[in-house]
Amino acid sequence: MQRSLAFGAYLLFSSLLLALLLYSGRQQADTVAEHYFPANRQLVKQLGLTDLSIWSEARYTRHPSQADLFTAFQDYPGAFDHFPAGSIIGPGCLQGSPSLSFQKRGQP
């Protein structure tokens, strides 16, 4: 009897936990849908953005929806690489390319 009680309690507890998580997720999604999505949509609209800034390593990954049609290794926008090797080899290092730097306020 003890074991089935303990098991029942475990099941009850974890289902309640899951329900709670889903419920809080729903609440979170609602607040997000109310504040964050409209704000971001507004931002997208004002700046005329077309893509998510997730992958910034190459221009066809930064703007998958805007990328050229016939760039090497790429057959259509959203295609990653032509060859399987593309997902194993990392980006190369270019010599003498510019880099980004900053100057702190007040420093020469």
């Binding site: 507004q42 910034s56 980004l100």
Partner: peptide
């Protein structure tokens, strides 16, 4: 609306930054 934008590659961080021109100075959210 004509858009003006381009990339700026940082060879140290190996990142393509996106440079975007803005005309409209009204405050965007966030």
């Amino acid at each position: 609306t004509p858009r003006v934008w381009g990339y700026y590659y940082d060879s140290l961080k190996k990142v393509n930054f996106t440079l975007l021109g803005v005309n409209d100075a009204s405050e965007p959210p966030l």
